[in-house]
């Protein structure tokens, strides 16, 4: 029995399905549940902003997509393939497999390898055999996006400044052809000007058929530059997100 029978049929003009489809996701750590029954659909070519205060689950959402939370339930489909699972899993146990499905996570803070040089760092991002073979031109491409890194290639990342680290972190994520980029608070802890620069660079990235979600506390940095903005409040998405169905239905009756 179709529930949307009476309305106009869903307009699926896109050639492929959504890149990310989250249904009924709950996730948390131990006794604490951070994300409550969340739904989200991200389509190819979309640049999405998630805005919310500290501790409302933006990072946890990203970690849940990457399989890094303490436990999670519900369905996460990446490129139509189920990566979430409803098991209570140890954090990070399947992350590398999820990542290999086409996910690039640029985490909040300095989730980077202190001892490696910038160049090795970028290399480490090239985890598919193809990317590893083509790592030289890819590095060039990233250096074109972040020119300041060019003269730092041989410097251990531990010695870089916060902004440079963020650039390295984002550059590392760009080394493979990901279908979905998750950028967690690109401006956190950076001077406003540098933060803006990092944001510019993110906006400048050609998405093609992939998609990008940027989590940010500062709405001003996102407004007008992303395709849609969702608010995150105590573990649920408000705004457009909860009406994901609405984006499919038409109201011109």
């Amino acid at each position: 029995m179709s529930k949307t029978y009476w309305n106009a049929p869903v307009a699926s003009s896109e050639p492929q399905g959504p890149i990310l489809e989250i249904k009924g996701l709950s996730a948390g750590y131990g006794p604490m549940r951070v994300i409550h029954d969340l739904d989200l659909v991200v389509r190819p070519g979309e640049r999405l902003g998630v805005v919310g205060l500290n501790g409302h689950g933006k990072s946890t959402l990203f970690l849940a997509i990457a399989g890094l939370t303490g436990w999670q339930r519900g369905s996460i489909k990446l490129n139509g393939r189920e990566v979430g699972g409803s098991r209570s899993q140890g954090p990070g146990r399947y992350t590398h497999l999820i990542v290999r499905q086409g996910l690039a996570v640029m985490p909040q803070g300095d989730e980077i390898f202190h001892g490696l040089t910038v160049e090795e760092h970028l290399d480490s991002g090239a985890f598919t055999p193809r990317a590893w073979r083509e790592r030289a031109p890819r590095k060039e491409r990233i250096l074109a996006i972040f020119p300041p890194l060019r003269k730092l290639m041989k410097v251990p990342v531990g010695r870089l400044s916060g902004g440079e680290r963020r650039m390295v972190s984002i550059g590392r994520g760009l080394m493979v052809d990901a279908a979905l980029f998750l950028v967690d608070e690109p401006s956190l802890g950076l001077a406003p000007k540098i933060g803006k620069g990092v944001m510019e660079a993110l906006m400048a990235i050609e998405l093609g058929s992939s998609a990008m979600i940027i989590a940010e506390q500062n709405v001003a940095l996102l407004e007008g530059r992303v395709d849609r903005i969702l608010g995150m409040h105590v573990g649920t998405l408000k705004g457009e997100a909860s009406t994901s169905l609405a984006s499919q239905t038409k109201r011109d009756l």
Binding site: G28, G30, P31, R33, H36, D37, W71, S88, T236, S242
Partner: peptide, 26 residues
């Protein structure tokens, strides 16, 4: 106890559908 708390939490998450059960904070 830790394990039990985690299980309880997971268990609750299966019941808490959107708009239904109040979130613990609320």
């Amino acid at each position: 106890r830790d394990w039990r708390d985690k299980k309880k939490s997971e268990n609750r998450s299966t019941r808490a559908e959107k708009g239904g059960e109040m979130l613990p904070e609320e």
